[in-house]
Amino acid sequence: MSDMTVAAGRRSRWGLFIAPVLLLILAVAWSGFWFYAASQAEVAADAWRAQEARSGRIYDCAKRSIAGFPFRFEVQCSGASVALVSQNASKTPFTAKLDNILVVAQVYDPKLVIAEFSAPATLTDGVTQTSFVVNWSKGRSSVFGLPAVPERASIVFDDPTINRLDGTMQVPLARAKQVELHGRLADGSSRDHPVIETVLQIAQGSIQGLHPLLLEPFEADVRAKVTGLTDFTPKPWPQRFRELQAAGGHIEIVQSRIQQGDMIAVAAGTLGLSANGRLDGELQMTVAGLERVIPALGIEKMLEEGVPQATLDRVAPGVKTQDLNNLFGALDRAIPGLGKVVKQNANVGLAAGINSLGTESTLEGKKARSFPLRFADGAVLLGPIKVGQIPPLY
């Protein structure tokens, strides 16, 4: 065998080792990069927690770990807790605790962060010491645009339920098939004066203990736009709302639709904040099937049992309970049983009064009424009738 043949054989054998060696070097370099990036992720997480804590939102984990090598980061937070210390005037913390949070980011797309939440969660109001248990079958969220100002974010819960703890008993408060909340920076929005577009969707939602109307499942789809924000700096919500009011900010309800059985309601308009931190503004509503809502208001039963003044102030400001009692008593003295007849037909009269508001319309092929729903310093007014009162936001 010639010398040239031997040399060629040696070169060919060396070529067999080049690819594995390069692959090994690449693997070592990638491993170093991953572990360095993982350590930096922990540093960034600690810095974010410290920044949030300065604004009164304290996040903690009983145990935290990072995995996901080689192509993604998985941050596991077991025994997660959140304490909102300065979100109200009393400075009393509102706390939330849940079993586990898993946060995932791909190495090749670190701006997109996805999280999964393990149920249940326990919420405690530090002012009233009332506790709630929140459950769900699946909870997840996503945020795009980190570590800078997020461009969009979403959170979705399947089969969520909220129960109030009464000793060892859990009293049902609310439930739904699914709840979704999405938000994003509006196109053309500047970072120093951001405009946020939001979508809230509730499927088969129901609320117990507030009003019989809310017991029957409903569907909701609300699309809104928030203006008047000055920045995304973490800060207490009362401070955020004050700044929004001072800047003349508002919430524009671009489109909303609520359906409950045969009743369908759509609304659009603009809501702002008064100097007292209460809602001000007006929504133009169109409602189909309004007549089915009237019996659920319980006017007849309310009149039969006697109307508490607080309730009367809510549904008919300026009318006194004694005035009603005197009226029904006088009717019964004039014609026995007449007062009862009037009470029993109260729903009919109220329906006729509400139907006289606004104008006739058509909604999704059904007869409907269009009328304004006004908010005056927190009071909710359907025409001249006060139907609710919203507490101040700060």
Rank of each mutant, 00 (worst) to 15 (best):
G277R: 01
I294Y: 10
A346I: 03
G339M: 02
E305F: 04
T359A: 08
S370L: 07
N345W: 10
G358K: 00
R314D: 06
T286S: 09
G337A: 05
P336R: 12
L279E: 00
A346N: 04
L297P: 03
E300I: 06
L297M: 08
R333V: 13
T286W: 06
V341Y: 11
N325R: 13
E360G: 13
G277N: 05
K367P: 14
A288H: 11
L327K: 11
G337R: 07
L363E: 03
A310E: 12
T359N: 07
L363I: 02
K366H: 13
M285E: 11
E282T: 15
A288T: 12
N347P: 12
G358S: 00
D323W: 14
F328L: 05
V287E: 05
R278G: 02
R314G: 08
D313T: 01
L297F: 06
D313H: 01
K366E: 10
E304N: 08
G353R: 15
N345Q: 15
N345G: 15
V319I: 10
G281P: 03
E282F: 08
N355Q: 14
S274Y: 00
P336K: 12
L297Q: 05
A275Q: 06
F328G: 03
G353L: 15
P308Q: 01
S274D: 00
G329T: 09
L283Y: 04
L363A: 05
G353V: 14
D313L: 02
N276G: 10
P336Y: 11
I335V: 14
I299N: 01
G277D: 02
R369M: 03
Q344T: 11
G306V: 01
T362D: 04
R314W: 04
A351L: 10
Q284Y: 11
M285T: 14
A352C: 09
A352H: 12
G281C: 04
P317F: 02
G289H: 04
L290T: 11
P295C: 07
K340P: 09
N347V: 10
